[in-house]
Design a protein around this nucleic acid. Structure first.
Length: 417
RNA sequence: GCGGGUGUAGCUCAGUUGGUUAGAGCGCGGGUUUGUGGUACCUGAGGUCGCCGGUUCGAAGCCGGUCACUCGCCCCA
């Protein structure tokens, strides 16, 4: 190794970035808790089939973007490329089928071997929620509402649009697929090579092609919403009504499809145009077939996942680590007397740093640099008087005080900041 | 995986048609200040010019390769 570095598409998180990520995560955990979703944590790697079975053999996630490997006992394992499959697997393993509905939230790293770009890494984090065991359209509305509140809490609603669509049930989807293929077959010579491939494997995906010629062709293609059977159509109408009722803005996008095989009925995406081609910031849908694909009973589910890096990029704020108090000794041999003072301050919930090095001038420079509110100074004079000197670093005033009195002052004023 | 752009100090960036010792601002260290910070002034450290090879008397600048980032495609959060 000629130089130490991280592997491609895998980044360090320094305090400033991590702070932004944690803001996103905490907003997600907090709002989902209020919706009565409970946090769970599942493994970062699983037996490969946990992902290969439900995601489908046509998805790039499984075919070329996976981190798959054999461990020492020759088990085929895969770093998780997404969260939903693992959550449902955990739900089945725990026997919670007996106890539905279950509402879960989770966050953590995911892995996809993709070409990195801004907002698209090989190790990236998602925050997601899953609602299992409810087939009612109410659950779809609830889940979208939760996503909307989450983004609202991050102050992003004005930067983001919600698009929804329905893929219908199995019957509707099959009918539509047939009609679409029929239509597209007439344009085979004009379609892009990518789309030509998709025509055989997953024709619905041609609908969201960005190729201009493809888009022109797709413009006059049959509309999926016209192919929903009565049940599916009524279900989609209910969801739109529910969103209207909540005053959630959305646009129906008949070309919105999901890449993964397990989706049915509702599909939705919150997108931004501030991140170039990585515009999707939170996306999900209903996946009633997933549980069965994993070998479990038929359990309906609906949920979404959000890209933490992407959200952090557009919700960015400057991280400022403020210190409540610095402790300054007049000379080195006084430093040890500062330790019990620090202990006491920490016990009172006050953020403290002892500045060990340099003369007084340097110590104050350091205090200034770390944006301390107060300095507690201890020297010969203070020791003989059995007090400390409290300095307000904002206005520069100083006074001799009993330590307990100083703590009271600090506690009151630090929270005003 | 395909196509384009970029890579010079910790950060943001200059660096002319290839020419001596590669610069600036910010940041960082020391000092003006032996019980006192922010401002100001003085001063110092910090570079394999991403890496490897080639062309040349001579390369940060040209050529080839490679790595990383970035933009678009693909895909997706």
């Amino acid at each position: 190794m000629e130089k130490l570095r991280t592997v491609r598409g895998v980044h360090d998180l320094l305090p400033n970035d991590l702070h932004n990520h944690n803001k996103v995560i905490n907003a997600g955990l907090d709002i989902s808790d209020k919706y009565n979703y409970c946090q769970i944590e599942i493994p970062i790697f699983e037996f490969a089939e946990v992902f290969t079975k439900p995601l489908g053999t046509s998805s790039d996630i499984v075919t070329k973007e996976n981190y798959i490997f054999k461990d020492r006992s020759e088990d085929e394992l895969m770093l998780r490329p997404e969260g939903t499959s693992g959550v449902v697997r955990a739900f089945l393993n725990a026997g919670l089928v007996q106890d539905v509905p279950q509402r879960f939230s989770y966050y953590g790293p995911m892995f996809r071997y993709e070409r990195p770009q801004k907002g698209r890494l090989r190790q990236f984090k998602q925050f997601g929620i899953e609602c299992l065991g409810l087939s009612s359209s109410m659950a779809d509305i609830e889940v979208i509402s939760l996503g909307n509140d989450f983004l609202c809490r991050l102050g992003l609603l004005n930067k983001i649009n919600l698009k929804i669509n329905s893929l219908g049930d199995f019957e509707s989807r099959n009918n539509y697929r047939e009609a679409l293929v029929n239509y597209l077959n007439d344009y085979q010579s004009n379609l892009s090579t990518d789309s030509l491939n998709r025509l055989a494997i997953n024709p619905l995906r041609i609908l969201d092609s960005k190729n201009e010629v493809d888009q022109k062709i797709v413009k006059n293609a049959p509309n999926i919403l016209d192919y929903l059977n009565y049940k599916s159509k009524a279900r989609f109408d209910d969801i739109c009504k529910g969103l209207d009722h909540l005053n959630i803005n959305y646009t129906i996008d008949k070309n919105l499809v999901r890449g993964l095989d397990y989706y049915c009925h509702t599909a939705f995406e919150f997108t931004t145009n501030e991140l170039g081609s990585q515009g999707t910031v939170l996306a999900g849908g209903r996946y009633d077939g997933l549980s069965k694909m994993l070998g479990g009973p038929d359990v309906p589910g609906v949920g979404w996942a959000a890209g933490i890096e992407r959200l952090a990029l557009i919700a960015q704020s400057k991280f400022v680590n403020k210190t409540d108090v610095v402790l300054i000794g007049q000379s080195e041999n006084i430093n040890y007397l500062l330790l019990p003072i620090m202990k006491k301050l920490v016990q009172k919930g006050i953020k403290t740093e002892i500045i060990y090095n340099g003369n007084l001038s340097k110590k104050f420079k350091r205090a200034n640099k770390i944006k301390a509110l107060y300095a507690i100074i201890l020297g010969e004079e203070e020791i003989s008087k059995k007090v400390i000197k409290l300095k307000d670093l904002k206005i520069g005033s100083e006074e001799f005080l009993d330590l307990n009195h100083a703590i009271e002052i600090i506690k009151i004023n630090k929270d005003l900041e």
